[in-house]
Design a protein around this nucleic acid. Structure first.
Lengths: 120, 120
DNA sequence: CCGCGCGTTCACGGCTTCTTCACAGGGCGT
DNA sequence: ACGCCCTGTGAAGAAGCCGTGAACGCGCGG
């Protein structure tokens, strides 16, 4: 599941720029400091931007083991990520919760138009 | 930009686009948020678009158990779905009632009449 | 030894979602 | 007209899901 051949993969989504190889994240050009877990989680979510990813899949991707029922690690790290991201780029929301499904990474301006049902 | 190889099933019917594995629904390009039940029901109906599906069959498909007499769950969730769908795409009707038989999923421009909610 | 960052796990509370009721209107047969 | 079956729809209670602060342990550098 690892492909090391990439010269330099760069994920650029909204104000976020991620260099998976380099361990670097910048938000609006300013570098953001993340722990290893936070970083890995962000990378895996960013690679699947726009899609809903279940906790089980995220856990498998980041922790490398199947999610045990009752484990809230993913939630906790999503929270830590949200804090750092939204803190570094006010006015944006990055990780959207889909109750019962999982999380979806998609940087969007916090609130713009007429709301009709987005994230609950 | 990000692509993880995955032959994803996509149901595209009228203004509705459904990714059964992704848990995502878009209406006229805008993402629609549904609960798990709502989503599963929509998927099963969309897979049988144009055909009448009985409550018993829908219940079996979505709830995974035979429908007990008197149970109105299917009706309730059809209603919830209708509200969200028609709310997200005014001018369309999606789920048609066939009294005594069941429901039929088929997005159609709603004829601007002021009749009651049932189609025949 | 002490402080600190990191990762894990708990616990509390708020908010969603699901299920079930209850009532209302329409259609149909008697 | 009346009763009955069918469906639409709002609401209430229960159950489940998630956000979040905090405690605990560990390893590391000072």
């Amino acid at each position: 599941m690892e492909m090391a051949a990439s010269p330099e993969e760069i994920l650029s989504i909204g104000p976020v720029e991620i260099r998976p190889q380099g361990g670097l994240v910048t938000l609006d050009r300013r570098t953001l400091t993340l722990s290893v877990r936070e970083f890995t989680l962000l990378v895996e979510m960013a690679r699947r931007a726009g899609r809903i990813v279940s906790r089980a899949e995220l856990y498998l991707l980041v922790w490398g083991a199947p999610l045990r029922s009752g484990d809230r690690s993913v939630d906790v790290y999503v929270h830590k990520l949200r804090v750092k991201l939204e803190n570094g780029a006010p006015g944006w929301s990055f990780i959207h919760t889909h109750v019962g499904f999982g999380y979806r990474f998609a940087p969007e301006p916090s609130h713009s138009f007429h709301n009709t049902a987005t994230t609950r």
